[in-house]
Structures are given as structure tokens and as C-alpha cells.
């Protein structure tokens, strides 16, 4: 496959992640209203009792969320161009991005695991559901480190490979994850795991990040292709 085509696919994987992961959630019933920390045992058991639908949706979501790996790699390609000889932030982004992506992937699998046996002891179902949700929303460090690394690299880049405002979007999205550890402390209200400032804020800003990064990198690739001109076409052939 032509190198540029792979790069383009990686860029489009950003928006694709949003569509497929959210679509899977919609099927599973996680959207529009996710289970809350204050849901009763019956409500939790009832959710997982629609096991086929939940499983199908979660499998789709877990595949969808992993589409962020190609985007992470593409970001790495651009960061290497920005940093040059000592791409430490590039490596940091790759490493922390991989961890962040895993921390989004694992909870999807955990929920599927819960749906595997709907007739399990209800207490176990609730416990595993708690585990999945808290594991999903509370680890903020890997993703914040990833996005701060991207932002710093963009601001330090003298050649403005990517527009500088993208750095600030990264900082803004990272900041939006700061309230998430509060989910440990509250079972209801706007700071519980299904609260507006936790689940809804983080999902919205992360979706925006995926879209912005995907589209911006797509544009930047075209800019570079234009600048390189015919030499790319000949060497790529």
C-alpha cells in the first residue's frame, strides 16, 4: 500500500473511532443514559440481562475504541518531524498514548465479560460493573501526559508543521479530564461517574479531540504533499 494512503487511513481513524465506539455504545444501551453509581442492584442486573444486545454493542465499541491506535501512530510521525534529532516527546506520546488507549479498551471488555453470564450473583455483577466504569473514567494521567506532550511539541516547533491552536486544544482537552478522579468520591450528582462533569464532559471532549486531530493531520498531510511536489510521486511509485 502506498505510504500516503496508509497515513490517510490513520488520519481518518480518528473520526472513525468516534462513530464506531459511540455506535457500539448506543447498541449496547450504554448511551443515551449510562448506568450510574447510584443505580440499584436490580437496574444493573437488568441492564446486563439483555446480554446479546449488550455483548454485540460492546464488541463493536471495543473494536471502535482501538481505532485510536492508528491515529496515535500518525501523531507520532508528525511529532518526529517537529522534534528532529531527539524526539523525546514523540516517544512519550507513543508510550502514554498506548497506555491511555488500553485503559479505554479494557473496560469495554470487562463489561462484555459481565454480560457473559447474566445470571451471576447480583453482587458480583454490581462489583464488576463498578470496576469497569471506574477503570474507564478515573485514570487520567496517561491521556493527559499524551496530550500535553503533543501540545508542547507543537508549541516548540519552529516550522509550524501543525497550527499552534491545536496545541491549546490538546491542553484544553487534557484539562477537561481533571475532575474525573472525583468519581471515586461521589455516588450521585454531577461528579459521579455518570455525572455531567465526568462521563459527559470527558466523552464530549475526547470525541472533539479525535475529530480535530484526525482532520488537522489529514490537512497537514496534504500541505506536506503539496510542498514536496513531484518527488513524492516518483519515490512513492
Amino acid at each position: 500500500m502506498l505510504n500516503t494512503r496508509i497515513l490517510t487511513l490513520c488520519a481518518w481513524s480518528g473520526p472513525a473511532t468516534v462513530l464506531i465506539a459511540l455506535g457500539g455504545w448506543l447498541i449496547a444501551g450504554v448511551l443515551p443514559l449510562p448506568l450510574g453509581a447510584s443505580s440499584s442492584v436490580d437496574q444493573v442486573v437488568n441492564f446486563y440481562s439483555h446480554d446479546t444486545r449488550v455483548l454485540a454493542g460492546l464488541v463493536i465499541s471495543s473494536v471502535g475504541i482501538c481505532l485510536v491506535f492508528p491515529l496515535t501512530a500518525l501523531i507520532g510521525v508528525f511529532m518526529v518531524r517537529m522534534e528532529g534529532r531527539t524526539p523525546v516527546l514523540t516517544f512519550l506520546q507513543l508510550v502514554s498514548g498506548a497506555a491511555a488507549n488500553l485503559m479505554l479498551f479494557l473496560p469495554m471488555l470487562l463489561m462484555a465479560f459481565v454480560a457473559f453470564r447474566p445470571d451471576r450473583n447480583p453482587e458480583l455483577t454490581v462489583t464488576l460493573n463498578d470496576l469497569a466504569w471506574l477503570l474507564f473514567l478515573t485514570p487520567i494521567a496517561p491521556i493527559m501526559i499524551q496530550e500535553i506532550a503533543i501540545g508542547v511539541a507543537i508549541l516548540n516547533d519552529k516550522r509550524q508543521t501543525l497550527p499552534r491552536w491545536v496545541a491549546y486544544v490538546n491542553f484544553g482537552v487534557a484539562f477537561s479530564f481533571v475532575p474525573d478522579p472525583l468519581a471515586f468520591f461521589f455516588h450521585s450528582g454531577p461528579f459521579a461517574w455518570n455525572g455531567i462533569f465526568i462521563f459527559w464532559l470527558a466523552t464530549t471532549t475526547y470525541a472533539i479531540w479525535l475529530l480535530v486531530m484526525g482532520l488537522i493531520l489529514r490537512n497537514a498531510m496534504q500541505d506536506l504533499a503539496d510542498a514536496d511536489g513531484p518527488s513524492v510521486a516518483t519515490t512513492a511509485a
Binding site: 491545536v166 491549546y168 486544544v169 484544553g172
Partner: peptide
Amino acid sequence: ELGLWIFILW
């Protein structure tokens, strides 16, 4: 710069 204002307003 403009980008900073995106962050500040956010």
C-alpha cells in the same frame, strides 16, 4: 496568540 484564547475561554 489566538490558540491561547481558545484555551482560556474553554
